[in-house]
Design a protein around this nucleic acid. Structure first.
Length: 226
DNA sequence: ACCCAGGAATTGT
DNA sequence: ACAATTCATGGG
């Protein structure tokens, strides 16, 4: 199992072989990957399709308030994140009232896959990137992008490289080893796999860390001059 | 009214 | 294989 204390030096040494990533790493010395509980990560990213971050946060807030368990911390009341069983048993209309829209079907199918044992997180953590991804892609509501995010943020696949238009722009602007594929406001399945696999080969076993630095820097500097 | 948002599944060619 | 369409929702 991966441990940050042991491997942080190795990881940054590895991804810092690239000059651009080396510069960005120095800009954001505290940036780290989280290791989220898989069911939280899955529900969060299933909610993330075709919407924006404020809306995603609102959906998750509504879900915890409606299906989580109340807990008091320093006299303040919070709600725990719902379990897969909670979502699996949840009433459809109550889920819809959280603002999930058409994503209700997706979150239901994911919850059932977990609750039924079809998805076993210990097995997925022990499996390779390719094997674990293949299992995730079976679930309705989990496509290429969401699968890679789940693998990187909660299943310890540090070589996963989630692709989106921001990362694609960063790669195409800075790396000539990509034979420049044009893309519009969306990435096709073919473009996704070409770009993600190329980046995985280039950055190596900690490609996901490089992805996070590149992505974060793109969002920080969006609209500004580098 | 219109466009967009860290997409994915389904249908059409 | 690949392109087009649909799927709810809220913010700007």
């Amino acid at each position: 199992m991966f441990r940050l204390d042991d491997d942080a030096r190795t990881i940054f040494g590895e991804i810092s072989r690239d000059s651009l990533v080396r510069r960005i790493v120095r800009l954001y010395p505290g940036l780290r990957l989280m290791r989220q509980e898989p069911h939280q990560c899955i529900f969060s990213f299933v909610c993330a399709s075709n919407t924006n971050i404020p809306m995603i946060r609102r959906m998750l807030h509504n879900l915890t308030r409606k299906f989580g368990r109340p807990v008091k911390v320093d006299g303040l009341e919070f709600f725990t994140f719902p379990s897969a069983n909670d979502i699996d048993r949840a009433d459809i209309d109550e889920l819809r009232s959280c603002g999930l829209g058409y994503r209700v079907r997706a979150i239901k199918s994911a919850a059932h896959a977990i609750a039924s044992g079809q998805l076993d997180f210990d097995v997925l953590k022990a499996a390779s990137y390719e094997e674990a991804k293949k299992e995730l892609l079976q679930i309705y509501g989990i496509g290429n992008k969401i699968a890679d995010c789940i693998l990187l943020f909660s299943l310890e696949k540090l070589d996963a490289f989630p692709m989106d238009v921001w990362i694609a722009r960063a790669l195409l602007e800075n790396y000539s080893w990509l034979h420049q594929e044009e893309f519009g406001d969306k990435l096709t399945l073919h473009q996704y796999e070409e770009l993600s696999n190329s980046a995985r080969r280039y950055f190596g076993k900690y490609a996901g860390y490089a992805q996070q630095y590149l992505y974060y820097h793109m969002r920080q500097t969006a609209g500004k001059k580098w």
